[in-house]
């Protein structure tokens, strides 16, 4: 399966009236997780998060694609 670049945030059994709501839910979770961390701590947390999610995805073809998309324009 190729890298999914379409909006994909969702929660089991939950209906959303506004298309932006599940993405906003995630973004709030993300910022909350970083709250009160120093810049160094945030960096470390981001690294750990990437490793956790990469392992969850597992498929090296998808991860290769994601790495390329992330690197673009940086």
């Amino acid at each position: 399966m190729p890298l999914n670049l379409a909006p994909n945030f969702h929660a089991a059994g939950k209906r959303y009236l506004n298309a932006y709501s599940p993405g906003d839910d995630f973004y709030e979770m993300l910022l909350d997780a970083h709250r009160d961390l120093s810049d160094e701590q945030s960096e470390l947390m981001n690294a750990r998060l990437i490793l956790l999610l990469a392992n969850h995805i597992g498929d090296l073809d998808v991860l290769r694609e994601a790495l390329a998309a992330a690197r673009e324009d940086v």
């Binding site: 670049l5 379409a6 909006p7 994909n8 506004n18 932006y20 993405g23 973004y27």
Partner: peptide, 18 residues
């Protein structure tokens, strides 16, 4: 914001006011 021009998932996350 940097990815929103290219990727649909990022566009939905752009929040200039709901």
């Amino acid at each position: 914001l940097g990815m929103a021009g290219k990727h649909a998932f990022a566009r939905v996350l752009v929040n200039s006011g709901r």
